[in-house]
């Protein structure tokens, strides 16, 4: 067995052991309205809100959403890779499949990508994301999310000549994709904890390394 896989399984087993006494207290919570379900299955019931934070390598993120009628959920989120590539976005989610134990949601996001450092760039972005989550029993919820993001990178070129400085703007597209699989655990009726693994594809052909994160979900009704 690969060492990483072994370590992951050991971690998951450990997490389940640690959570065991706590999750008993969560029994009786309404699964379809749990914030972890709303965050990873996507969307919130009308009048409910949910938030989440994740930290890991390389991504960190915060996400807040509020449920409206007819399956619509607006949200805001900010994600960052190593605090170097930052992507604030607003979005709208629509629940496609909305059953008590299974949820599938489509999301559209509009934002701005700002990367600092040696490879600095910025530009507007649009992303499409599909989320899916399902309960296994009352405590564990595997989930997945797949995102395709298209960014228009804007370059400003200043050419200094004897007659003055000429400035021009050029733009080029860039495509990023991100797949996430993970599992969320119920900590309480209003709080969930999750571990996820990310499979990115960034900057078109750039080779990418997988990521991992821990996240916390919470929510309720105002």
């Amino acid at each position: 067995m690969h060492r990483c896989t072994g370590r992951l399984l050991v971690f998951l087993a450990g997490a389940g052991f640690v959570l065991h006494p706590t999750v008993r207290a969560a029994e009786g919570a309404s699964l379809p309205e749990h914030p972890a379900f709303d965050m990873h299955g996507g969307g919130s019931k009308p009048g409910s809100w949910a938030g989440g934070m994740q930290a890991g390598f390389p991504w960190q993120a915060v996400h807040l959403q509020y449920g409206l009628e007819d399956g619509w959920t607006p949200f805001v989120e900010v994600s960052s890779a190593l605090l170097q590539r930052n992507e604030p976005s607003i979005g709208l989610a629509l629940r496609w499949v909305d059953r008590p134990r299974v949820r599938v949601t489509g999301e559209v996001l509009l934002g701005w990508q700002v990367q600092t450092g040696v490879l600095a760039h910025s530009g507007p972005s649009m992303a499409l994301r599909v989320r899916a989550a399902a309960w296994v029993g009352r405590r564990i919820m595997p989930y997945t999310a797949w995102t395709t993001r298209h960014t228009l990178l804007i370059d400003r070129t200043a050419l200094e000549t004897a007659s003055g400085t000429e400035t021009s703007l050029t733009a080029g597209p860039r495509w990023d994709a991100l797949g996430v699989v993970g599992v969320a655990f119920v900590l309480s009726p209003r709080v969930g904890l999750e571990l996820g693994v990310e499979y990115p594809r960034t900057d078109g052909s750039t080779v990418t390394l997988p990521g991992v994160h821990l996240g916390l979900q919470f929510g309720g009704r105002p």
Binding site: P58, A81, Q84, T202, T208, L209
Partner: peptide
Amino acid sequence: PFPLNLIPE
């Protein structure tokens, strides 16, 4: 490789 290209130093 990403994300090492974000922190090349």
